[in-house]
Design a protein around this nucleic acid. Structure first.
Lengths: 256, 256
DNA sequence: TCCTTGTTGTTCTTGTCATAACAACATTTA
DNA sequence: TAAATGTTGTTATGACAAGAACAACAAGGA
């Protein structure tokens, strides 16, 4: 009998596609054999024998298991390739349906009596910040201005280059060297040394300013030991302030 | 204020991507406006005001909402296009991870002391039967023999034709006419009248025999008022019986 | 007769929903 | 300016549903 991979990871992954703990354990057990009775499933999976029956019913409903009405009944797994794709298909259909309706609502959303674009919004955690930034960069229409630490910039550089390929005017200041290989003509890259002494502003480890189309700005703040935070705003004041800061930095490095 | 679409359907769809009822209602409310306070969200969504706060925390964690630390705090939806794709991406990653591990286990599954291929497996419900059949047809290596009612055949004919395009030898007997348009050369189609009188076997409304590679057979049984059932087997006896039945039917119609 | 299979019921646990209560802060009123 | 009122944010509690875990029993098979 082969060793079972870490089944806690597996049941956790299968929970994402809608399986309960017992459903996962039973399906995993069945995947390992060509077929089994309920009692055998109980022995392989550790799920209580009486519970195996309703669990199997549910797995049959979910098109992960088929039954032979022998005596005793025998059960067989549908291949994971097929079974999981079937589950995912339904989830995707539901997600698409919801997305369509919601996106329509979103496009017609109520225009409040202003003020929202004056707000500064907070985003916590590197993953969410990257997702927000990639979205902003992907939808840039005119220009992108960036000053960013290389440590962070490398995580989004592929998005930046992809947007550059559509001819969007992009100017980057960073301690990260210009990437070797294909770099679109519309991407202007200024590489700065990591440390230029006390008189020069330094680029922090996890820091950056990202200005899109001269009207949206995102300020990344963080250090390597604390989860990063970003502030995002469409406020004219906020954007202008960082546009000027960006120009200042660029001016410094043009002289150097 | 625009009319809200049927939000029970929406919350049901969003449940598939992992949102609770309150999370769905709050997100839907936020999608409709450019931003709102917790109290406004409570008024729009109907979720109790005290419950809105922990729900918003969770939605922020799920990258569906961002917050501005104004007084009172204001919240804003991330666009459904982006937000739902983010959720789906995680589900898909989990599904792929599970699928990979499980498929490897499945390929090495224990070979029992035979007998499974002698069993007859039951499949209930049209959707599951179609999925099973499409899988069988897609993986056919040599041949497919079909006798099927047109009513059912039309639901899988695209799969059959796609497999025909890979040169698999396919013979079909049905009351469904050969489809107009591109039909692969390896698909031989015999059309039979719906009713040939008492002396001839009739093709039931929801019925069919599907034989793949001369070693797998699926028998579809049903009528229009009862959900169909299928029997599937790799048993030599079962397959041979229906191969002979298929040949008999074909012989009848060659004479006619 | 004993064992196995299948089914049902009960209890416990956990998470979500729904409500109440309270502290802190902001705004309004006298 | 102080007091009264309203708003915001947080926490606690109870009800409910679903899943997990176990016990018990009837029916069928060996």
């Amino acid at each position: 009998m082969m060793e079972l991979p870490n089944s806690a990871d597996l049941t956790e992954s299968l929970k994402s596609v809608g399986l309960t703990k017992y459903e996962s354990l039973v399906y995993i057990a069945l995947v390992r054999v060509e077929g089994a009775t309920a009692t055998e499933i109980h022995e392989i999976s550790g799920v209580p024998r009486a519970s195996v029956y309703p669990v199997l019913d549910r797995l049959i409903q979910k098109n992960l298991v088929i039954v032979s009405h022998s005596t005793p009944r025998r059960f067989r797994a549908i291949s994971p390739e097929e079974g999981i794709d079937n589950l995912l298909r339904q989830i995707q259909a539901d997600a698409d349906a919801a997305k369509q309706v919601l996106q329509e609502i979103y496009r017609q959303r109520v225009t409040a009596d202003g003020g929202m674009e004056e707000l500064i919004w907070s985003i916590y955690g590197e993953e969410k910040i990257i997702q927000r930034l990639e979205e902003l960069i992907a939808h840039a229409a005119v220009s992108i201005r960036i000053v960013s630490s290389g440590q962070f910039l490398q995580k989004i550089v592929h998005s930046v280059l992809r947007t550059g390929e559509r001819g969007i005017d992009i100017e980057i200041i960073s301690d990260h060297p210009r990437p070797a290989g294909a770099c679109p003509a519309s991407v202007h890259w200024t590489t700065v040394p990591v440390s230029l002494g006390q008189a020069q502003p330094q680029i922090e480890n996890m820091a950056g300013i990202f200005i899109v189309d001269g009207e949206k700005a995102l300020l990344l703040m963080g250090s390597t030991d604390v989860a990063p935070t970003a502030l995002y705003s469409e406020s004219t004041g906020f954007v202008n302030f960082f546009m000027q800061y960006w120009s200042f930095i660029r001016g410094l490095h043009k002289k150097a």
